[in-house]
Simulated assay, not measured.
Amino acid sequence: MRLVVVSAGLSVPSSTRLLGDRLAAAVGRRADVDIEAVEVVELRDLAVEIAHNLTNGFPGRRLAAAIDSVTSADGLIVVTPVFSASYSGLFKSFFDVIDKDALTGMPVLIAATGGTARHSLVLEHALRPLFAHLRAVVVPTGVYAASEDWGAQGLDGRIERAAGELAGLMRGLSGVRAAAEDDLVVVPFAEQLAALSSPSGA
């Protein structure tokens, strides 16, 4: 299976890239999924081509290769720094130039980095709705890392839990136990109406 990490970090070194690498390594350690290759797409290196694609509708060579890698992956890890309480413009622009149906059914792990824990809800109010709109399948656990989280025990736990969920989806499992069909009792509408119109006590 092929795992692709999309990193929107701007600095070198980048905490955003570091988080993406740690998540990918955690997925790779899972015994229940066989990761043959991990590819990292650094959006910083594609910024000019992304801007040109937005204005002329045609991807450059490197951008086209990155889009092909992302859309043909078996699973995605997407990581963005938080700017103005949301994902970065570069991150959003990259997914804007991908065909809206290309990520349908794609297993995706969402993650973000920021300077303060106050921005942790970016995962739920920005990233998760974006990938729901693209009809990707987003794992339940998102991973946010504030500056104080690096080296903290809690971050490792979230990384491992999210990695396990992504591995499950990549194997074709939802990780969520579906209710057994026998537990669902459907009463036909006509029968419900008949019960309402019956005399009391009948």
Rank of each mutant, 00 (worst) to 15 (best):
I110F: 03
A24R: 01
W150R: 11
F189I: 14
A167H: 01
F91I: 04
V27S: 02
G89C: 09
T55H: 13
D149T: 05
P199Y: 00
T16A: 08
L63C: 03
G151R: 13
Y87P: 00
K100E: 13
P129Y: 06
V185L: 15
A163V: 05
V108I: 13
I110K: 03
R2W: 04
R29I: 08
L43E: 01
Y144R: 06
S11W: 02
R135C: 07
V12A: 12
I77K: 00
N53P: 03
L184K: 12
L103D: 00
D149R: 09
V4I: 11
H125W: 10
V138I: 14
G89N: 07
R61W: 03
V137M: 10
S147Y: 10
L63W: 03
I35W: 08
S120G: 08
D156F: 09
V38Y: 07
A136L: 06
P140W: 07
S84F: 14
L193P: 05
G201Y: 00
S147K: 12
S7Q: 02
A126I: 08
P81M: 07
Q153F: 11
S93F: 08
V82H: 00
G151L: 10
T80V: 02
V137C: 12
T104A: 12
T113V: 15
H52Y: 10
W150G: 03
E181A: 15
P140V: 05
F58Y: 12
V187H: 10
P13F: 12
V187R: 10
V5Y: 00
A25G: 11
V40G: 03
P81L: 04
A31F: 11
G172K: 11
G114T: 04
G172A: 11
A145E: 02
A202T: 09
A85N: 14
T113I: 05
I35R: 04
F58C: 11
T80M: 02
V5L: 02
S86T: 14
G142E: 00
P188Y: 10
D96M: 08
A136V: 07
L10F: 08
G201P: 00
L166W: 08
A179V: 15
L123Q: 01
A178G: 13
A195C: 04
P13C: 13
L184P: 03
I98V: 11
L19P: 04
R158T: 10
S174N: 09
S11P: 04
F83Y: 15
S88F: 10
H133N: 12
A8M: 08
F189G: 07
D68C: 06
S7N: 09
L155F: 01
